[in-house]
Design a protein around this nucleic acid. Structure first.
Length: 217
DNA sequence: ACATTAAGTGATT
DNA sequence: AATCACTTAATGT
């Protein structure tokens, strides 16, 4: 458990070197709330009002979108250590309801920043502005790539990229998920995922187990 | 031992 | 590539 302000300071230096400006760092320590989430716990759901900007300290978060018609869900991108939820920015600036769902993929710790500081810090601290802009750009790229992937790529490359993204995000080559869950993320059928994974296993790229996949390459 | 859930497979569209 | 129908394997009670 991380609660001491000295700990927060240490975390900021380690995980968020971009926003190490001393005054800013002090303010984050004062107003930031450290929060923990368990695997699968939903941090923010559709239609809820965004009131905190999360700085992700450890763990990883899945950002997804739900289809209005049949309630199917599609993965947009993952967020990892040292990042923040870029869509939160626009959402809370406009005071709009969330159009996305964010869900912890594993034990995840964040520092929550109340929205009122967002605006203030943008003009007050150069490093904050840069941090916001830089993560915004980075996630926008992920989003575009994800769109390209859905539109132009076949299931097998989409699956490989998905596995790679999860590994990159968690820093672990072991992915804990059922084929069904992966299929939901990719909006594919479970059978298709199972078959493609089997192919990857035969090609020596992964090792399959119940509820888990190990990436070998 | 039995029930439940995950994964593998062939056939059909 | 989706769906169906069914089998096999792993796991929980």
């Amino acid at each position: 458990m991380i609660t001491e302000s000295a700990d927060i300071q240490k975390i900021l230096r380690q995980k968020f070197p971009q926003i190490a400006e001393s005054g800013l760092q002090q303010e984050i320590i004062e107003v930031g709330k450290v929060m923990h989430f368990k695997p699968w716990e939903i941090i923010m759901d559709f239609d809820s009002y965004v009131k905190m900007i999360p700085l992700i300290v450890s763990g990883s978060i899945k950002v997804s979108r739900e289809d209005d018609l049949d309630g199917r869900e599609i993965l947009l991108y993952f967020l990892g250590e040292g990042e923040t939820c870029s869509l939160s920015f626009t959402c809370c600036m406009m005071n709009k309801k969330s159009i996305i769902r964010t869900q912890a993929m594993e034990e995840t710790t964040i520092i929550g920043i109340p929205i009122k500081y967002m605006d203030l810090w943008m003009s007050k601290y150069q490093s904050w502005k840069n941090f916001v802009m830089q993560t915004y750009e980075s996630k926008m790229m992920d989003l575009v790539k994800s769109l390209d992937s859905i539109a132009f790529e076949s299931m097998d490359t989409r699956l490989v990229k998905y596995l790679q993204a999860r590994v990159d995000n968690t820093g672990s080559t072991l992915i804990q998920a059922t084929h069904q869950e992966i299929a939901n993320d990719l909006n594919a059928s479970r059978e298709a995922v199972s078959r493609l994974l089997k192919k990857l296993e035969n090609a020596g790229e992964v090792e399959l187990g119940r509820n888990q996949i190990k990436l070998l390459k």
